[in-house]
């Protein structure tokens, strides 16, 4: 029981936080993309969207607008 409480406490102390949709200005910058080469990543994403007729699941969808 104490171990479970300690784990819960550790989870509560996590530094992770949710970024509100209106606070994604910095995340929308091309240099904040997860890929090492933002240009290539964008081109591949666009190809994927066109071929699969689907989008989403990327780090920040739709240029960071949080609306997709």
């Amino acid at each position: 029981m104490k171990r479970a409480a300690a784990l819960a406490l550790l989870a509560a102390l996590s530094a992770c936080t949710t970024v509100a949709p209106y606070q994604r200005g910095y995340l929308a910058r091309p240099d904040m993309a997860l890929g090492a080469d933002p240009g290539t990543t964008r081109a591949l994403d666009k190809t994927f969207d066109a071929k699969e007729a689907a989008r989403g699941g990327a780090s920040v969808g739709g240029g960071g607008c949080g609306c997709n």
């Binding site: 929308a28 910058r29 739709g62 240029g63 607008c65 609306c67």
Partner: peptide, 10 residues
């Protein structure tokens, strides 16, 4: 309306 330059649909 809430808008931003980085928001594509805006």
């Amino acid at each position: 309306d809430f808008w931003a330059s980085w928001c594509v649909p805006c």
